[in-house]
Design a protein around this nucleic acid. Structure first.
Length: 252
DNA sequence: AATATAATCAACCGCCGGAAG
DNA sequence: TCTTCCGGCGGTTGATTATAT
């Protein structure tokens, strides 16, 4: 009986008002009980989702900013489709919104650029290098290749074969910890991601060989993007924005 | 102006892990 | 220890809106 009465589909303004009033009064959580108490003919799950994705006062709506875009790219390259985890780094943004953004904008863009295998697979220095360089405060004019920072391993390497890339990255990643190498997964032909705890190591083929990226364990410093002289609008229009995503989407 | 197609995004579904009984 | 319930998560769907023809 109760199940038959449950409402589905878009929420009405009246339902929203009731939900907001009850959450304001009783707080979040216990969603099933809240739905019953409020007289909402919705599941607790539906109430929770509506609140978190739409009604919550601190939820931010509107276009993703270039800075948020970059952050999403970076965090996705680390963690993959861990949307809720990524969302925690973008205040006011919901996992649902980021997930939708990724699927509709980023994957679409990557797909559109997927014209011809050779072009797709050619590794050219692109966004990651300037970002990493900028995050260390290197001006773009001084950045000519793999970069390093005091006390940290260089983020990028060049190798002839994927095995070498994996080995070197692994070596570097493990050198500062006591972790065992036994649990490292193998990388499929054509590239892959090595996961070790919270870190992701990306490996992929390139036109002249192989490259590997060592993902730094700390967030990038986007405040220093100004050092490389970029305009925010450039970040969304330039070709350089997508190679990392292409690599990732190819592996999906 | 009408229709078709693409893009967007709110909402649902199923699965999983943890807490409570 | 087992079972049930609940909340959280990622994947998917479908309605709505925008854009192209």
């Amino acid at each position: 009986m109760e199940l038959e009465e449950l409402r589905r589909g878009p929420w009405t303004v009246e339902e929203d008002i009731v939900l907001v009033e009850h959450v304001t009064e009783h707080g979040e959580g216990r969603w099933n009980a809240l739905a019953r108490r409020a007289g909402l003919k919705r599941t607790g799950k539906s109430c929770r989702l509506r609140w978190l994705n739409y009604l919550r006062p601190d939820v931010r709506r509107g276009n993703i900013t270039p800075e948020e875009h970059l952050l999403i790219l970076d965090l996705h390259s680390r963690w993959g489709n861990r949307w809720s985890k990524i969302a925690r780094y973008l205040p006011g943004r919901t996992d649902n919104e980021i997930k939708n953004y990724w699927r509709t904008r980023v994957q679409k863009h990557a797909k559109q650029r997927d014209v011809g295998g050779a072009a797709r697979r050619r590794w050219t220095p692109c966004l990651p290098e300037p970002i990493h360089a900028a995050s260390y405060g290197f001006p773009s004019s001084s950045y000519v290749g793999p970069i390093a920072a005091p006390g940290r391993p260089p983020p990028f390497y060049s190798f002839g074969q994927p095995e070498q890339a994996i080995a070197a990255c692994t070596e570097t990643a493990l050198s500062s910890s006591s972790s065992s190498k036994d649990s490292l997964p193998t990388v499929a032909q054509g590239g892959g991601m090595i996961e070790r705890g919270e870190e992701m190591l990306g490996v992929d083929g390139g036109g002249g060989g192989w490259w590997a990226e060592f993902q730094l364990p700390c967030p990038l410093n986007y405040d220093k993007l100004g050092n490389v002289g970029w305009e925010s609008s450039d970040l969304l229009s330039g070709d350089y924005s997508w190679t990392v995503d292409d690599n990732w989407s190819m592996k999906q």
